[in-house]
Structures are given as C-alpha cells and as structure tokens.
C-alpha cells in the first residue's frame, strides 16, 4: 500500500526540499522563459474562481497526488475558516467556488459549507474522487446531496481500464469508480438535459504528457458508454506537475530530468497566457492565500503582503498582484496547457 510522504517522514514533505530539487536541473528558469515571450511578470485578470482546499484528508493515496493526501492527513479546514472564506467571497464578484482536497467530503463541515455557499448563489464545483461515495454509509447519499445543490462534479478517472487506473490510484479503485459513476448517472449526472454536470479528469499514469483533450474525450465517451453504460459531459486532460508524490515518483523512477526537459521543450506561450492562476485565488485548509493549489503545496504564498490570509482578504490588492512562479509552472504551459479545467489552448 502506498503511504503519504508525510507518514514516511520523506524529505520531500518539506516544500523547501521540493523547490531545491526543482532548481537542480540546467533548464531555463521559468521566469526567463516568460520574459523571452514577453509575459513576465505574470499578472492577474479579473478573479473568477475561488478555489478552496478544505483539507488533505483522503480515503485514497494516489501515487501522483500533488497534495500528498491520505487517510493519515489530519489537516482540515475548520468551520471558522470556512466562514472567513464566505466573508471573503462576498467581497468579490467571483462566480465559481471550487472545492477540493483531499476528499473534500471527509471534512465534517463539508455539507454545512456547501449549504452556506449555495445561499450565495455561486456555481459550486466539488472535486470528488468517486470512491468516497462508497467508502462509508454516511457518504452513500452524496449523489443526491450534490444534485440538491446543483453542484458540478469533477472526478478523476485516469483510464477506461482497471490496470492503468489502479496503477495510479490504488488497487480496486477502477471498479469502485465505475460503480460511483453509475450512481451519479442514476440521479441524472452526465445525462443530457438534466443540467447536472459530471466532468472527468484524465491525467497520465506515468512520466508522459497527456494526449489531445478532444481525442481523449471522444475515446472515453465511446469506451465508457459501450463498456459500462456510463455517460459524462466533458473530459479535462491535465498534465501532472512535478510536485510532491509525483515529483517523488519522477525521481525514484529516474524520469525526473527527461520529464522536465519534455515540459520545457513543449512550452507554449499561448498556454502561458491562459494559465489558471490569472483568474483564480486558492485558499489552504488553514486559510492562507495562494495563486493556485500547486503553489499552495509548495508554500509559495501570494505576493500581496497585506493580504496573505483569508481573514485579511483584500480584493483590490489581490486583484493587482503578480503571480509567483517557479519551475513547476512548466507543467501548466506544456503543449495545450493544463489547468483544473483541462487544456487552456
């Protein structure tokens, strides 16, 4: 069984160690690459997405997890910080609140939070790992709960076969995911005309880049329908960023340098123009503010020194901030680009 880096006492638990490793290669600094293409400093555009990581606790321990999540992780957002998030959201005109984790549903205040966010009339996304729905009786009604609040569900399914899915996400995950997808379909998710959106995330199960999102979506739709009678709306192809457990995998499988070279060689200035941090703000379980979930894991807080915590949320200064970049950002700008919503080109 795979364990979180933290439970292993692995040195890559420390963000500083990860950053040192990212600097080790002879590759051009990401900042210089941006300069070369007249994109430095990377600035914000109007804030659209408020992404909240409600905790690192998860029922799974996927090999590639950039959060280093797992059942042993106890860092979860308190109701008080959730309230601070609600207060902050009210100071903005964002229209999407994106809840991620870990498995966000494992936070005991998850449902309360969703209900409160629902009252604000925002579009709510939940990044649901699927297996959580069946992990315990108390989660069995999640499809109905999601439906009640018209939540957009985004779920990972690295492949339409067990071998690749289980290799990345753990033994038996494919089968459980298929059952969960069926339950979501049953209440209307992914069905045409239901208005209930179910999107899937594909990310490569190894040290290679994702295929074209369009081609993959076509293939997934065909295979999931014919093999399992499952429907979904869109497929997002996401590149694995060299952070945390995926970074550890790259190093231990001796793929680190060639993977980084590949990312750099595939740098696409159009993708760089569209990176998600430009319209997103990301909040960690303990309320700190980051440009994105990846910077969060590397402990690279937003550049606005007067507003680095959701308690001190200052919409104006955050809206004018420059993005903090580092070598991992090459993962967002390779090929068709990558964001929490898939390709950006």
């Amino acid at each position: 069984m795979i364990k979180s880096l933290k439970s292993l006492g692995h040195e890559l638990t420390e963000s500083q160690k990860q950053l040192q490793l990212l600097q080790l290669t002879n590759l051009m600094p990401f900042e210089d690459k941006l300069k070369e293409t007249n994109l430095f400093p990377l600035t914000t555009i109007p804030m659209e997405i408020f992404q909240i990581n409600v905790g690192k606790m998860c029922n799974q321990v996927c090999k590639h997890c950039h959060v280093d999540a797992g059942p042993d992780r106890k860092e979860i957002m308190s109701r008080e910080t959730m309230q601070d998030c609600i207060n902050a959201i009210q100071k903005t005109n964002v229209y999407t609140v994106d809840l991620t984790g870990g498995a966000p549903e494992m936070n005991p205040d998850f449902r309360w939070f969703v209900e409160e966010l629902s009252k604000l009339g925002k579009k709510i996304i939940v990044r649901c790992n699927l297996t959580i729905i069946q992990a315990n009786k108390k989660y069995h009604d999640l499809p109905d709960f999601f439906k009640k609040h018209k939540i957009e569900v985004i779920s990972s399914l690295p492949y339409f076969s067990a071998s690749k899915t289980d290799a990345q996400r753990g033994e038996g995950v494919f089968e459980k995911s298929i059952r969960a997808l069926k339950l979501l379909n049953e209440v209307g998710y992914g069905k045409e005309g239901s208005g209930l959106i179910l999107n899937l995330v594909y990310n490569p199960a190894g040290a290679f880049l994702p295929a074209s999102q369009m081609a993959l979506e076509k293939e997934f739709k065909l295979k999931l329908k014919s093999g399992f009678d499952i429907e979904f709306n869109s497929l997002f192809a996401i590149t694995n960023l060299p952070i945390s457990r995926f970074l550890d995998y790259l190093v231990s499988s001796k793929n680190y340098e060639s993977y980084m070279e590949k990312l750099v060689a595939a740098y696409n200035p159009i993708a760089a123009t569209n990176v998600m941090c430009r319209n997103t703000i990301s909040v960690s379980w303990d309320g700190f503010l980051y440009d994105c979930d990846f910077n969060q894991m590397l402990n690279l807080k937003v550049a606005t020194h007067n507003s680095q915590h959701v308690k001190d949320f200052n919409f104006d200064s955050l809206s004018q901030r420059n993005i903090i970049v580092n070598q991992h950002c090459y993962g967002c700008t390779a090929g068709s680009g990558s964001s929490c919503g898939g390709s950006v080109v």
Partner: peptide, 12 residues
C-alpha cells in the same frame, strides 16, 4: 512507445 502513451493508448 512514448508517443502512443501520450496519445492515450494502453499496454494492451
């Protein structure tokens, strides 16, 4: 091998 993997093919 790498290219087919990147195009979404599996080992089979």
């Amino acid at each position: 091998t790498q290219d087919t993997m990147e195009k979404g093919c599996d080992e089979a």
